[in-house]
């Protein structure tokens, strides 16, 4: 039997599923719809052009930069516009240092807080805590910068002094000064411990904590309730339940949240600029005063830049953008893998 049945089939000869062809639908858009579809496509393409032109423009700036400074742009660590010696080696290292220390402080805090919200806090407290974390994400970076500068810096320098005094034999924690000197005894202000990568990382921590925490919490809360209850019914303590059910389930959320936070930390500008004392130097001593990041470099030297230096700054910005882009897309992929398709995110 072919598809063309003229008379309605009798009950006994209902066509099999393979004969039930979908009707050919020809969509005739009304004029209104055509206008809508085309204008939506137009806006979409316009946005595509605008948005990608930024990336292309930044990328294109690396051509004159490499023409002018050559490959030494990536290996030179000094930034001396007056002598036209410019390179981003130091700022890239500084950016990564500040971001990594920020991650090192923020991720354990975020992980524990996310666990507290998802598994320890009583149910009535949970929405409030979730909202507080979201609210913290909305606090402007400059406010955290102020806070670190005037509230956290004094105790942080003392902590840094203490660490470098007793653990200074470890290269990362060394400070090139006489650690037996009290910190108030060193030239104006606190030259050797304030404005370090460590202090800047405290500001970065406050910026990235909410993001990492909310990603982790979302994944933890999706842990299957049946398995959690099964673990508890078998006599597991709360921690044993979390260790065997929630953490394995949320592993991709932990990794993804960490990397999203890393992407944010790399680009954090204003709170870092306020805190650090700018120094262009590649050094492992994160407790020592003076560091610089790509964004702080841009913020501090865009004004006096000549055209070639401006394009060098843009290239530095492009490098930063590529770094965050790579980290973010890896993170997005990892987080997406954890979602089991159920549940929607807003």
């Amino acid at each position: 039997m072919s598809g063309e049945v003229l008379a309605p089939p009798a009950l006994s000869e209902v066509p099999g599923p393979d004969e039930d062809r979908p009707r050919q639908i020809t969509a005739r858009h009304s004029v209104q719809d055509q206008v809508f579809v085309h204008s939506a496509r137009g806006v979409g393409l316009l946005v595509l052009v605008i948005v990608s032109s930024i990336g292309v423009f930044l990328g294109a700036q690396s051509v004159p930069t490499l023409d002018h400074y050559g490959l030494s742009f990536f290996t030179e660590f000094r930034w001396l516009p007056s002598q036209d010696r410019i390179g981003i080696a130091a700022v890239v290292v500084g950016t990564i240092q500040v971001a990594l220390i920020g991650i090192l402080i923020a991720v354990p805090l975020a992980l524990l807080t996310a666990l507290f919200i998802s598994d320890w806090a009583p149910a009535w407290l949970r929405p409030t805590l979730v909202r507080l974390v979201d609210l913290m994400a909305a606090v402007p970076g400059i406010v955290f910068g102020l806070w670190v500068l005037f509230v956290m810096q004094p105790p942080a320098t003392e902590v840094a002094h203490w660490i470098s005094k007793y653990f200074g034999w470890f290269p990362l924690l060394h400070v090139r000064t006489d650690v037996d000197y009290p910190i108030w005894n060193q030239a104006p202000g606190y030259p050797s411990y304030a404005g370090s990568a460590f202090v800047a990382a405290i500001a970065v921590t406050m910026m990235i904590f909410p993001m990492a925490c909310s990603v982790m919490r979302e994944v933890f809360m999706e842990a299957p309730a049946g398995e959690k209850e099964a673990a508890l019914a078998l006599g597991a303590t709360r921690w044993a339940m979390v260790r065997t059910v929630v953490l394995p389930f949320g592993r991709s959320g932990i990794v993804g949240g960490t990397m999203l936070a890393l992407g944010r930390a790399l680009g954090e500008t204003i709170s870092v600029v306020m805190v650090i004392s700018q120094a262009f130097e590649i050094k492992p001593y994160v407790l020592e005063s003076g560091t610089s990041t790509i964004s702080s470099l841009i913020a501090s030297s865009f004004k006096e830049a000549s055209p070639s230096q401006l394009s060098a700054l843009l290239t530095a910005g492009f490098v930063l953008f590529v770094m965050t882009l790579v980290v973010n897309s890896l993170a997005a992929r990892i987080v997406a893998r954890s979602r089991s398709g159920k549940g929607t995110e807003l």
Binding site: V47, L48, V51, S52, I54, G55, L58, G263, L266, G267, E268, T269, S295, I298, A299, G317, F318, L320, F321, T324, L325, V327, N328, S329, A332
Partner: peptide, 12 residues
């Protein structure tokens, strides 16, 4: 492209 550009640091 839009997803990628959300990674654009504000200073850039």
């Amino acid at each position: 492209v839009v997803e990628a550009m959300t990674a654009l640091p504000s200073i850039v």
